[in-house]
Simulated scan of single mutants.
Amino acid sequence: MDRRELADFLRSRRERISPADVGLPAGPRRRTPGLRREEAAQLAFISTEYYTRLEQARGPRPSREVLAGLARALRLSDAERAHLHYLAGASPAPPPGPSREVRQSILDLLARLPQAAAFVTSATFEVLAWNELAAALMEDFSALSPRDRNLVRRVFLAPHPERRPLYGINMADADDFARHAARRLRAAAARYPDAPEVTGLVDELLAKSPEFARLWASHDVTDRPTLSKTFHHAMVGPITVNCDVLDIADRDQQMVIYTAVPGSPSDQALRLLSVIGTQRMDAPR
């Protein structure tokens, strides 16, 4: 345990958090930057005396429970949480669960891709963010609950699996996605063994989908990328797109980007969709 480095690290993380970040009033007499020691201690569910001793490099080795409380109170990233454990002389604990917060720069990037359908998924395949063309091509995700925005639930828990309702993509592409999803979800379950949103999803799929149970039993975790997909859109017809996936490593998320070959009929269809948006041409006026 490196008491001095731990003390300095805790102080630096505490001082970067404003009271507003954690729902506390700033108050007229606040002179210290960031949180006060007693506020950090309260958020971590430990005594102010104990926390003060840690920041003065006089404290005993923190337990895993204390480290988890400190990480939560100081809003540490996964890398910072691991560093905290190393300083305390403990092996890093697994992250508490997949991140659902999309970085602002990624949201800005989505908005700057007007000719590509792009969206961000969590480690459990929940669609977290999307641009307008993705909503037009696939679905208006803003009208769905987080549970209903989960792509793996959609593909495995369909009322009629033989007609996979995965936004009109053909059966071969849907089957490829199903295999990819099962393998990626198994890897996520290893990274987040105690996360209820992961274990609950896996248990639900195992109980309700024989196909998922079969794929899960294979223990496969590697996969080949799907390079193209064909959507059959109700208003503009078939659209064949290239599929590229960018890993957002610090959040354990992925950005999926669909683009069409420039000048192709699919490119023209995507351009039309960007104008139509999510409106229905057959809707009564």
Rank of each mutant, 00 (worst) to 15 (best):
L151T: 12
V241Y: 01
A117E: 05
H160L: 11
L84F: 08
L273F: 05
F177K: 03
T240M: 01
T222G: 09
T121W: 04
E126F: 02
A135W: 01
I257Q: 01
A20G: 07
L6Q: 12
P161Y: 12
G277C: 10
E55P: 00
A143E: 11
A117I: 02
E65M: 02
A213P: 05
P98N: 09
D175V: 07
R3V: 11
L151E: 15
T226V: 14
A136H: 00
L84I: 14
Q253F: 05
R31A: 12
L24K: 04
D250V: 07
A134D: 06
L215D: 08
A26M: 09
R285I: 10
A213R: 14
R147T: 12
F177Y: 13
S266L: 05
H85A: 02
P196S: 03
D223I: 14
V102N: 11
R184T: 02
P33D: 09
S142F: 04
E139I: 03
E5G: 05
Y192T: 01
E162H: 14
P165Y: 15
G277N: 12
Q268A: 13
R183W: 06
A181W: 00
A195D: 06
V127E: 09
T32W: 09
A44N: 08
S266K: 07
R154D: 10
D252C: 04
R149P: 04
Y50E: 00
P92S: 10
A135Y: 02
L84W: 13
T48I: 06
P284N: 08
P265S: 03
V221L: 13
P92A: 13
Q42R: 12
L272F: 10
H233L: 10
R100L: 14
G263K: 03
D175A: 10
L128G: 01
L166I: 15
N242M: 06
A44H: 08
A129T: 02
A213M: 09
D223C: 09
I46S: 03
I46D: 03
A88M: 10
T124Q: 11
H180E: 13
P193A: 00
I106D: 14
P92C: 14
